[in-house]
């Protein structure tokens, strides 16, 4: 019979070092908004506390009238490989955005409004930037009813004080 030098170790569960993630989105383009939503919601899927903070044009994703009609930029977006002069033609942005949304639909990616609901049901939190709201003359009534609040930059940092918290600017 074989005798082991050391007792068999039971697997030790490692404590997660990333406990909370805070995502900031300042843009209204499809790519920026989905990157923010996938990161924020993906954190919840991994059991990580998650908060999403929208500022500047990022507030568009929180406005019910606009959230499902976001565009992809056809000018100043070299990744799209459309020459700038053609990208600027009327209707190009709508065409490119419709095509991208079709591709996303094939992959079963939800619309922004549905994604926000999925994220919220997962326990994720969503905040709007106070200063940006004032700049765009928006009130809380203009925003999605389920947001968790309106924050100043100080409020934002005070929420980031826990150990194991990371901030990502999309």
């Amino acid at each position: 019979m074989e005798i082991l030098d050391a007792p068999v170790q039971t697997s030790i569960k490692k404590e997660k070092s990333l406990k909370k993630i805070m995502i900031i989105n300042s843009k209204a383009t499809v790519d920026s908004v989905y990157a923010a939503l996938i990161l924020a919601n993906g954190a919840r899927m991994e059991g990580i506390e998650s908060e999403l903070f929208c500022t500047f044009f990022g507030l568009e994703m929180l406005q019910p009238k606009k959230m499902d009609h976001l565009h992809v930029a056809t000018v100043g977006n070299p990744g799209l490989h459309i020459p700038t002069m053609i990208g600027g033609l009327p209707g190009m942005e709508t065409l490119a955005s419709t095509m991208m949304k079709k591709e996303m639909d094939k992959l079963d990616i939800p619309t922004v409004s549905e994604f926000l609901e999925i994220y919220k049901a997962s326990g994720g939190k969503i905040f709007a930037c106070k200063l940006a709201m004032e700049m765009f003359h928006l009130t809380k009534e203009d925003l999605w009813e389920d947001i968790d609040g309106v924050l100043t930059v100080g409020d934002f940092y005070s929420r980031a004080q826990d150990e194991g918290c990371q901030i990502i600017f999309v």
């Binding site: 899927m45 991994e46 059991g47 997962s122």
Partner: peptide, 14 residues
């Protein structure tokens, strides 16, 4: 989704 997260907390799908 809410109940799914409650039944299997911290990473329900996995």
């Amino acid at each position: 989704i809410k109940e799914f997260y409650e039944l299997f907390p911290e990473g329900p799908l996995k």
